[in-house]
């Protein structure tokens, strides 16, 4: 059993995956524990709705773990997980056409109520848990700024500067050339600087 082996936390992703392929439940749980926070954070910042982010993160893990036998060890496990998570978020944004959330409400909102519901309120104390936390945090302006970026820029900048992934891994996750990823990240930071400058003013 897994308990008789060395602790799962000390193993590499590849080793834990190999145990999961042998049907060891503890290995599945270990993979969830390792990636639930970064995956959920990425999706949450993409879709900006806690319930929806949990659903998409859940679907991500179900897809990953049910297809664990098809995982190819020559690739990084984290890249595979983030790729599925990013696809889930992007697919959702495309389906719902909520690709960009403006501080003034979604550009796709058709009624005043819809505009009100999608306004990103920084510093307002009567909003959802995400916005409430944001209002208290030093990074609330940055969170708001990231929300205004294009989904591709958002994914790139989050993976690079929040999750600390390498350019190569981000290129693999997003299925983009390395040069494109570097350009996206640079442009995303430039846009973010402009947005934050505007907020400060």
């Amino acid at each position: 059993m897994a308990e008789s082996r060395e602790p799962l936390t000390a193993l590499t992703d590849q080793e834990v995956v190999a145990l999961a392929c042998q049907g060891i439940e503890a290995a599945y749980r270990e993979l969830i524990r390792r990636y639930q926070r970064p995956v959920f954070s990425l999706i949450y910042r993409m879709v900006r709705n806690r319930e929806l982010a949990e659903d998409l993160a859940q679907e991500t893990f179900i897809k990953v773990l049910n297809a664990i036998a098809s995982y190819r060890p020559e690739f990084k496990f984290s890249s595979w997980v983030f790729k599925i998570a990013n696809n889930a978020a992007i697919d959702h944004l495309r389906r719902r056409e909520l690709d960009t959330l403006s501080l003034d409400g979604s550009p796709h909102a058709e009624t005043p109520d819809a505009v009100e519901a999608t306004v990103l309120q920084v510093g307002d104390h009567q909003e959802s848990p995400l916005e409430t936390v944001e209002a208290r945090e030093l990074g609330s302006s940055i969170e708001a700024g990231i929300a205004q970026l294009r989904p591709e820029y958002r994914t790139c900048i989050l993976l690079r500067h929040v999750e600390g992934r390498s350019y190569e891994e981000i290129a693999e996750i997003m299925g983009l050339p390395l040069g494109t990823v570097k350009t996206y990240i640079h442009r995303a930071r430039n846009e973010l600087r402009v947005i934050l400058g505007h907020l400060r003013a």
């Binding site: 995956v17 190999a18 999961a20 392929c21 042998q22 049907g23 439940e25 599945y28 749980r29 969830i32 524990r33 639930q36 926070r37 970064p38 959920f40 954070s41 949450y44 910042r45 982010a53 949990e54 993160a57 859940q58 893990f61 179900i62 773990l65 049910n66 664990i68 036998a69 098809s70 995982y71 190819r72 060890p73 995400l130 936390v133 945090e137 030093l138 990074g139 940055i142 969170e143 500067h161 929040v162 600390g164």
Partner: peptide, 30 residues
């Protein structure tokens, strides 16, 4: 780099595991 990492609900792991089919024990490699 100072941005917070968000955490899903405590029941997240059990909800995922409830919908995951474990690999048969005979399967020893991907």
């Amino acid at each position: 780099t100072t941005l917070e990492t968000w955490t899903p609900a405590a029941s997240f792991e059990s909800r995922v595991m409830a919908r995951v089919a474990l690999q048969p024990a005979s399967s020893t490699e991907p």
